[in-house]
Design a protein around this nucleic acid. Sequence first.
DNA 1: TTGGAATGTCAACAACGCTGACATAACCTG
DNA 2: CAGGTTATGTCAGCGTTGTTGACATTCCAA
Lengths: 165, 165
Amino acid sequence: MGEQRPGNESLLFLTDEQLRRGIEAMFFAYRGFTADPDIILADRGYGRAHHRAVHFINRTPGTSVNNLLAILGVTKQSLNRVLRTLVEDGLVTSKIGTRDRRERHLFLTDTGKQLEQALSQAQRGRLRAAYRAAGPEAVAGFRQVLEAMMDPDQHRRFVAPGGRA
Amino acid sequence: MGEQRPGNESLLFLTDEQLRRGIEAMFFAYRGFTADPDIILADRGYGRAHHRAVHFINRTPGTSVNNLLAILGVTKQSLNRVLRTLVEDGLVTSKIGTRDRRERHLFLTDTGKQLEQALSQAQRGRLRAAYRAAGPEAVAGFRQVLEAMMDPDQHRRFVAPGGRA
DNA sequence: TTGGAATGTCAACAACGCTGACATAACCTG
DNA sequence: CAGGTTATGTCAGCGTTGTTGACATTCCAA
């Protein structure tokens, strides 16, 4: 089935078996990665979509809806449903743009920042522990592989500076 | 906000900023990671839950429903819905246990194996490219961090041999 | 024989993706 | 200014996949 290359010792990390281990590791790790925020979110009646919106609004305050759409890779209907509840609940404010009045610039309110901090601290706690356990060289490798795994668009956005907010 | 430790050069990889980059890398990478199988699945009217079931049945043929439940971490109702469609569509067979006739042992049919191969090849292709681009040392670090990020239960199961099938 | 474990099933619900359609306002170009 | 495009919002409907709760069946084990 696979394209093994017996005889070349340096490529043993590319065997199907190693790749299968990597696939399962991604699956289990992602579950751990989201587990702690999920508890906080469920407590307040939110889901992961809210977490993602809050995260990226915090990261790039004043970002437009369209920009957020591109980052999150969902439809505007899907994002709008989430944003509407966040605005209704007073976690996010949307201000009409000055240069282009069609745009809405999104900001976290103080309450929104509180939630972001709670989610962020929980998630960073898990990641920090993993980083500490694995050490700086492992972390560098971790980041390298993750970046190579992204879609090219996402990677460009990821590497690029904050955004055109 | 965070617990930075200025003055200790060796801990710079634990700054909140570095952790935030890691969090976003996980988010974007996981999206890339699932993108290719998602296309195949959508084409056949399945979702990620079907992928996961097919993957782990292939990995551990003859596994019981309860064991699969523990691995996937979902409710039996949720898994059952997925398994039912897979059995109906002739991708999975469930055989009554011989030692304990209450248990159902799950196997892929030839058709099921075909789907597993298609999904697996797509996903391995993406991961292989990332591994190749990053190199063996990076891959080792990648795996280390992922394993440290899992829940302890999952990690034990992950490291342990195949299962009690 | 009886308790409990393993499994299956029905119903209802929620989160969060999707498509399609439509409305409004604002911008931009000819 | 008119017409086209862009940005956003909203309604309606649908599908996957997770959840709880309740209940039935089968069967092992004490």
